[in-house]
């Protein structure tokens, strides 16, 4: 384990057992993340990316190995590892403001006064440009706006590690690009440590400091780690013509489509079994 690692995943194995059949999903996952680093996990669907994230979040318990965040072992979910869900997961009966306030009030009950908490909620919603829709219900705003609120809710908990589970997966391409830029801007300001799951190669190269590429399941593990040495702030337009950018893109693509070519029937079965195990 690296001493200056802020988030450290060491020797994580994950096996879902259903009845008598054991289904190894992850094997020997080792990853050290520095403070303020933006890490992307990329891999084919069914390779266990989400399982890694859920273990870091504390929502799943690893079969072996452990996760340490800022010197403390993870054994339950908590606001220090706030999660942005793929489908936003806003509570539909609460307004935009109330959704964020629920998390803020609970997290900072002891440390901030009611007025400070209110200001903090507004501040975070302003940061994702949602200050104009405080009293709307989730059903009344677009998918991109919902995801902004989901990001504001996670940021408002001042997490040590921000976990993004395919945060832009359900959005159309234009909205996605816009939100990616916003996340880059916010990350530039706050210097959060971020772990993001994605299967979008451009998104991974554009946003990350390092891309962690996972092999196919069952018993998936980390195949390669690619350092992205592009200076920030990054501009998608300028980069699209940049030789280094295209080189990184090519490296990820070749990992995904040559070295880890997807064997369809096998992976699909593994994913189905993993999903069954999750829902059981």
């Amino acid at each position: 384990m690296n001493d200056n690692a802020y988030l450290s995943i060491s020797g994580v194995d994950m096996t879902f057992t259903k009845g008598r059949t054991a289904n190894p999903v992850l094997r020997h996952i080792h990853l050290d993340v520095r403070r303020g680093e933006f890490i992307s996990l990329i891999g084919h669907s069914g390779c266990g990316k989400s399982t890694v994230l859920n273990i870091v979040a504390g929502l799943l318990k690893a079969s072996a190995g452990g996760v340490i965040v800022d010197g403390r072992e993870v054994n339950e979910p908590g606001p220090d590892r706030a999660l942005v869900f793929q489908n936003h997961s806003l509570l539909p009966w609460l307004t935009v403001q109330q959704n964020v306030a629920l998390a803020v009030d609970k997290t900072f009950r002891g440390s901030k006064s009611a007025a400070e908490r209110r200001d903090w909620v507004l501040h975070n919603l302003e940061m994702v440009s949602m200050g104009h829709a405080l009293h709307r219900l989730p059903a009344e705003i677009s998918g991109g706006m919902k995801q902004r609120v989901g990001i504001a809710r996670a940021l408002a908990m001042q997490p040590k590690v921000l976990l993004l589970d395919e945060p832009f997966g359900a959005l159309d391409a234009l909205t996605r690009a816009h939100l990616q830029d916003e996340v880059m801007r916010i990350q530039g300001e706050l210097r959060n440590t971020v772990m993001m799951i994605t299967h979008d190669v451009d998104e991974a190269v554009l946003l990350s400091d390092r891309i962690v590429m996972m092999t196919n399941g069952p018993a998936a593990t980390i195949g390669e780690v690619l350092d992205i040495e592009l200076e920030r702030p990054r501009d998608r337009l300028a980069l699209s013509d940049d030789a280094r950018y295209n080189h990184y893109r090519h490296a990820v693509l070749s990992f995904l489509h040559e070295k880890q070519r997807k064997v369809e029937p096998l992976s699909r079965g593994a994913k189905a079994r993993a999903c069954e195990a999750l829902s059981a």
Binding site: A57, G58, L59, E76, P77, G78, P79, R81, A82, L83, F85, N87, S89, L91, L102, A103, K106, T107, M157, S279
Partner: peptide
């Protein structure tokens, strides 16, 4: 939905 349970678990 499990998502709501997960939200509740994350914010404890």
């Amino acid at each position: 939905p499990d998502d709501y349970r997960n939200v509740a678990r994350v914010i404890r």
